[in-house]
């Protein structure tokens, strides 16, 4: 059961143009253009080592692109990760990077850091302004936990959560910084089909809140269900970009990444016939011998 709301293609939110990332002699990202508009969910797929996470890191200030620009809401991205978050881009990580020894609630509260400003002096004095701000942060954090279904585990240590819930916590924590764009790096890695469906629902809900999403994934059904547009990155270059149908059927993508026509594609029946014929052929030759 998937919910799809037809969000109108809005104004460009993230514009990456001509991004090149070089590490010494190695070019990890070659001349990639990518645009994410408001209200969109965009997918980024490609084989391992294609440069997807490197590209993400360019979008979040972790790396500064060797060439090219990345603009968010028309402004060039600041070169430091914490300023990028402040500008409105939040992310999750491929290998879960939660704050293991903090509680679930505290993890999300840390996510709110950039939208609050009470510093050391305020914490020491604890005037009414401080208490108000803390209460507000906690309320918002609990809202996010309810949104992701973790509200009853607010006081658990993050390291004690089961795997699927840790992924959800990462998303809740990222949402706490009130982003306009959420970058998800392999959010369903290691999940079973049920958990994957739940994550799909969650991402749709995030989009319905007005937050655009850019997601790296290997689970094709997830991507094709979810995304309005898909970009394919192979060896650092963008091969193809388009809707799910277009990308699924592209020969180059199939050759470089998908391997076989994805089930549900029109050639599937023909493909099944060919397989059956080959199987008969093999058994015939075996009988001969």
């Amino acid at each position: 059961m998937t919910t799809t709301t037809q969000a109108p293609a809005g104004t460009p939110l993230l514009e990456a143009s001509g991004v090149i990332m070089r590490f010494g002699g190695l070019t990890a990202v070659r001349d990639v253009d990518l645009t994410v508009n408001t209200g969109e969910i965009v997918g980024l797929i490609g084989p391992n080592g294609a440069g997807k996470t490197t590209f993400f890191n360019c979008l979040t200030g972790l790396y500064v692109p060797t060439e090219g620009t990345v603009k968010y809401q028309g402004n060039v991205l600041p070169p430091k990760p914490h300023l990028v978050t402040k500008a409105g881009i939040a992310r999750t990580f491929q290998n879960i990077r939660l704050f293991a020894n903090m509680t679930v609630l505290e993890n999300v509260l840390v996510g709110r850091h950039t939208r609050t400003k009470e510093g050391l002096l305020s914490a020491l004095i604890r005037g009414p302004g401080y208490h108000r701000a803390e209460a507000k942060s906690r309320a918002r954090a609990m809202e996010l936990l309810e949104f992701t279904g973790l509200a009853d585990k607010a006081e658990h240590l993050a390291r004690n959560l089961p795997y699927g819930e840790q992924r959800k916590l990462e998303i809740a924590r990222a949402l706490a910084s009130e982003p306009g764009l959420l970058l998800l790096d392999e959010p369903t890695a290691g999940m079973n089909p049920q958990e994957t469906r739940a994550t799909e629902e969650l991402v749709f809900a995030v989009r319905d809140q007005g937050i655009s999403v850019l997601v790296i994934e290997h689970d094709m059904r997830f991507i094709f269900n979810l995304c309005d547009r898909v970009s394919v990155l192979v060896q650092g270059e963008k091969l193809v970009e388009g809707t799910s149908e277009v990308v699924q059927r592209d020969d180059r993508v199939i050759a470089a990444y998908l391997g076989e026509p994805f089930e549900g594609a029109p050639e599937d029946e023909a493909g099944a016939e060919i397989e059956a014929a080959e199987a008969r052929n093999i058994s015939k030759t075996e009988d001969d011998q």
């Binding site: 972790l62 990760p81 914490h82 990077r97 704050f99 903090m102 840390v110």
Partner: peptide
């Protein structure tokens, strides 16, 4: 706990 994640959450390390 994790400085990279912390800066990604908007903390000026």
């Amino acid at each position: 706990e994790d400085e990279t994640a912390a800066t990604a959450m908007g903390i000026n390390g």
